[in-house]
Design a binder for these strands. Structure first.
Lengths: 337, 337
DNA sequence: TTGTACGCGTTATCAT
DNA sequence: ATGATAACGCGTACAA
């Protein structure tokens, strides 16, 4: 009682399954009249090829597996949107699977893809490199996105977190801010690590006299709120906060204002990601064009699958600073102390 | 040179493929010693079953197809997140496909799923019912989400847009607002239609003396801005705006304030969806728990697939009003005029 | 307990 | 131009 198969079509058109396959796939070695009879039979039966059987026979699924961590809302959807756009443009479907924080589960998720997809897109800023390498089926093409390092012969895309952090430090120093505090992301996350390191390096180079102050966080709003309370309570000078992502910046912003601090007059606040909220709150941030990165990852993977160049280099994507009101330049020089 | 197959494992363990299959699938009719030899061989070869072949043999793919329209960011990701949570909990993968505005493309997207998934989740508030029905493979189980009507024997979930709109009208009237303008969503979209109709009906019942005023929009921020300009320019009284979604409400809010209107003192503003932005802008809105709806849709589909009751009823999800500052009650009675 | 052989729905090879 | 048939990798009757 299932769907009609190629055999049903063959029977109805009174030809062999081979001819049906040829006709339906547009091969030219089939007589016009025969072709028409086949097409008619197919239409009458509402025949649709069985993609599973097809991919078994062709050894190509025309699907690519996408394994993402638990991303903050807008980031996730934009990433998938970018991927889907490019994938559907090139005739591929996306098989989705969330990889939670656990390395074990990540391996399971990756194995589940075997035999259903032609290649993998893996974003894993929080999985140790060796674990990732081990979990990745050796023969399955894969493109890494923001992995915590490079794996030989695996093409990869990376966001240039360091450059973003550096740009922000330059921007803040240029605005007359001197005592910049960084709110870091989760420890195991490469993006967080690189942003923190970029902050450290930029400060060491551009303002070597300033002490480097970093408060730990976890990318959630609450961490930003906690950091704000710590900053307000502390006697250490602080005239600017650079959070490792927008959500923490936003939490910080709110709490600072509630505590009576004026932003940016007393303390400037900046984030990273440029989530839609950032624009509405006039939050200075680093724009990460995640949809573009996703689309590009798909494109590289498909190029690989179709033999159009197996470029195995790591591609660095430069983020861009978006200056808004929360980091307006200081007007006087009363920054010290 | 591909991955190891079940045959390779059989050869290495010196047994038949049947025994390998049995051992790997945990059947009990295999001797302990044999099983261990098989397990060892599988591990040594890094064998992972080929899901494609498996599903062809079992006639079950353990995957479900998700066909969504081009959703606004957060809405999309939350929906997919909810679906993925439930799907992975029950051992299914999600095959994603965006269905753009075109009915033709929708049909193509649906057909591409044949032979790869066990069932379909379709959200199509913008596709005419007949087109949707025609495009849906007759024998493939499917759960409809916010479809523009009901299809016999197809289980469905719906957001109760009318109830949401009515709750908002009650809230606004209760706050002393009298001249409420509705900014509608795109014409072909059921959610938009139902919200507008709910607005009309509620007003007709609760404030029959008030004229019903509706400005057309398209769910985008710009439409809200345009509506705001129209409201400001018009001589018709207006002390409250109820937009069919948050993004339009937000656009409206900004433009009204830029035009010197105080919100909510001069004009109250409300939206629909409760996107994260809404909370930060203190926008009154209707909370739509889309992740929950997505998870529930998956759950119903899998129940169906596994024979645990083929409940074909339409399930109505009640949204909830979230009152925030943009619709604070009027303090005096100077509303008329 | 174990093995042989067939079927799942296609495509591709090799005849004719 | 067309047809018979062997793959593709797996599960599972059925036989032993």
């Amino acid at each position: 009682m299932g769907e009609a198969t190629i055999r049903d079509v063959a029977r109805r058109a009174e030809v062999s399954v081979a001819s049906v396959s040829r006709a339906l796939n547009g091969l030219n070695n089939v007589r016009g009249e025969t072709r028409e009879r086949i097409m008619a039979a197919a239409k009458e039966l509402g025949y649709v090829p069985h993609a599973g059987a097809r991919s078994l026979s062709l050894a190509r699924a025309h699907a690519i597996g996408v394994v993402l961590p638990d991303l903050h809302g807008e980031f996730f959807s934009e990433c998938v949107r970018g991927m889907d756009r490019e994938a559907s443009r090139r005739g591929y479907l996306l098989l989705l699977s969330n990889m939670h924080d656990d390395s074990e589960q990540a391996a399971v998720a990756l194995r589940a893809m075997r035999g259903r997809v032609d290649g993998l897109l893996v974003m894993a800023p929080h999985i140790p490199l060796e674990a990732l390498e081990r979990a990745l089926p050796a023969t399955l093409p894969a493109v890494l996105i923001n992995a915590p390092g490079e794996i030989a012969s695996r093409p990869a895309l990376r966001l240039d977190n360091r450059a973003g952090a550096r740009a922000m430090v330059e921007h803040l120093l240029g605005g007359g801010h001197r005592h910049i505090v960084h709110i870091a992301g989760p420890e195991g996350n490469v993006d967080a690590q690189e942003r923190a390191q970029g902050f450290r390096d930029a400060l060491a180079e551009l303002a070597p006299d300033m002490p480097v102050r970093i408060i730990s966080g976890d990318f959630n709003e609450e961490a930003g709120e906690a950091a704000a309370r710590e900053i307000v309570a502390s006697s250490a000078p602080c005239d600017a906060v650079f959070a490792a992502n927008d959500m923490m910046a936003i939490g910080c912003l709110h709490t600072l204002r509630q505590a009576g601090k004026r932003v940016p007059e007393d303390i400037a606040v900046a984030g990273f990601d440029d989530v839609p909220l950032a624009r509405y709150l006039a939050l200075t941030t680093i724009e990460v064009r995640i949809a573009e990165i996703g689309a590009r990852a798909v494109s590289r993977l498909i190029d690989m699958l179709e033999g159009k160049g197996a470029d195995t280099r790591t591609e660095l994507h430069e983020p861009q600073l978006i200056a808004r009101a929360t980091t307006a330049a200081r007007v006087n020089g009363a920054a010290h102390g």
